[in-house]
Each structure stands twice: as C-alpha cells, then as structure tokens.
Design a protein around this nucleic acid. Structure first.
Lengths: 149, 149
DNA sequence: ATGGGTGCAAATGCTTTGCAAGTAC
DNA sequence: GTACTTGCAAAGCATTTGCACCCAT
C-alpha cells in the first residue's frame, strides 16, 4: 500500500505541482498526531514546533490534501472548517457534544447500507456522505442534570 | 395545534421580546413558499415583494426563529448557512447534488432507529442530527456519462 | 530556465455589533 | 415610560487572492 507521502506526491505530479518543503512539513504535521483540527490550530501547532509556514500556504495545502483524498473537510455547523484524516481510517460518523465540543467517532455499517438503498431509490450517485448527531455526551448530560450550564 | 405565529409569539414572550412588524413580515415570508433558503435570498425575496427589512434584522430574526424551533440551520459544506422549515415538516435528511445543487429530501425511519442505538451505546443524549449525502442527482449523472462537466 | 510556490498584506463574503433613533407593551 | 428594536455602517472572522520574489524540477 502506498504511504501518505507517496499518495500526495503522486497527486501533485499528476497535476504538475511540486512537492515543496512547506507541503512536506504540513503533511508530516497533519498526520503526526492530529485527528480533528482546524486550519488555525495547525498554524499554532506548526509554530510550537518551530516550523514556519504562512497561513496562506496552509490553506492552499489543506485544499490539496483534501483533493488528493488524504483529508476530509467537515463543517460541524460552525462557519469554519475542520479537517480529519481519511488515510488510515475507516469511514465513520460523529457524535458532537454541544457543551464541551467533544467529538466521538462511530462506524455503523447498517446505516451505510440503508444509505445505499436510499440512493438507489432516488437514482442518486453518492460520492460521500456525512452524518452528525448533536447533543450531550455522557459527562455533560450528567452535569446538566444537577446544575444549569 | 399551535400556528407558527403562536409558537413564535410564545417564544418571544417567554424571553421578554417583542413581536414587531419586521418579525411578522419575516415570519410570513419565510413560510410563504421557501423550503430551503439563505439569508441573502430572503433579503432579495423581501425586496421583490416591496417589503423592507434590513439585513441586520434578517439575521437577528432568523436566529430567533431557529431558537423558537420553527427553523433549522443547515450548512451544506459551504461556509454560509441555509435554513429550512421545521414547522409542518417531518424530520428528513438530504441528498445534495454536487453539480446542480439540487436538494432531495428523504425520510428513512430505519436510519433514525439505528442512530438511536448508536447514541444508547455511547450514552449520548441526542438533540438533533443531520445526514447529508453528496453526489450526483439522476440528471447530472446522466449528463456526466456523455460529456465532461 | 521557468512555471509553479511562497509570504505578505489587502480583499472577500457572510455574519455580527455599536450606536442613535424608533416602537411595542 | 422604558426596555427592547431597528437600520446603518463599521467591525469580525475564516478564507482567498494579487503580487513580487523564490525554488523544485
């Protein structure tokens, strides 16, 4: 199986784009330990590691990583994007806590099956999907029973 | 059953807010015929009907309508919000065409059931959920078989 | 060498906010 | 009368873009 670096290089080459130091740095950092992150968090993270890449390049590179299929962009009802790994992760969906912003991932194949049925019914050719359930996680719902948030 | 106007008035009263002419106008227009719309479309629509409400008031009122439970805010992967009716509509999910932006609504109770199971498993207290499937609608996938988009 | 890449700062687009004047209750 | 509201214009925020200089191939 191709490494994420190979996949990225291949994608770039196919578009006549170059594998620059900045793109390397971002790729490494993105897959170093983040699971979910925002563009700005990545910027801070790079700074903390003494890596300097401009905000513009971060946005430009994240777009390329999404196009290459290594990342996925998700918007959790806010106005800014979150990114998450596709490479090395089974497709999953999210439970998003409205109180503490915790994100729980889950996989439920039976839901995916039903989605396929729905698509067939509407002759719709699915390319991707996302399911988010908003609410309170276990911890926060306990807290909310006793006191007002 | 309460009318949408009653629901809105009740909500406003509960928060010590007033039922102004502008709020009335927006409420009427929103439920006149739109299903999915964006703040800006509503503004244009009001103008076309010789109703004048400022952009600021539109945003402020839409937020109130969401809080009162009459509308739902959805972000389809873009960075701006779409609104849709909750009042008078069964909960449904969406197929979103990446080519022509057509939105198909569907309801699938078996998916909702499985979502409940997932929540139970994670002791998560769901407040709302949304499922979107992106891809190509029947028409657009036909076109794409013959020609490049 | 050269076409793509980078950082910077300015621009964009949607949404929110401060403020002075108006209005529902 | 007194909060709450409105419209306007300015501010905010995340993201994008124009441009002059830089670098991977």
């Amino acid at each position: 199986m191709l490494s994420k670096e190979d996949i990225f290089k291949k994608y770039l080459a196919s578009k006549n784009l170059k594998f620059t130091t900045e793109r390397q740095v971002i790729l490494d950092r993105v897959f170093a330990d983040h699971k979910h992150f925002e563009a700005d968090e990545l910027l801070v993270d790079l700074r903390l590691n003494d890596l300097k890449v401009s905000k513009a390049t971060i946005y430009r590179t994240l777009a390329l990583l999404v196009q290459s299929g290594l990342l996925r962009e998700v918007i959790y009802g806010e106005r800014h994007a979150h990114y998450e790994h596709v490479y090395g992760h089974e497709h999953h969906d999210h439970l998003v806590c409205n109180n503490c912003d915790k994100i729980i991932e889950f996989t439920e194949h039976r839901i995916e099956k039903l989605q396929e049925e729905v698509c067939k019914k509407y002759k719709f050719k699915a390319e991707s999907h996302r399911l988010q359930i908003q609410g309170l996680c276990e911890n926060c719902s306990k807290k909310n029973n006793c006191a007002v948030k």
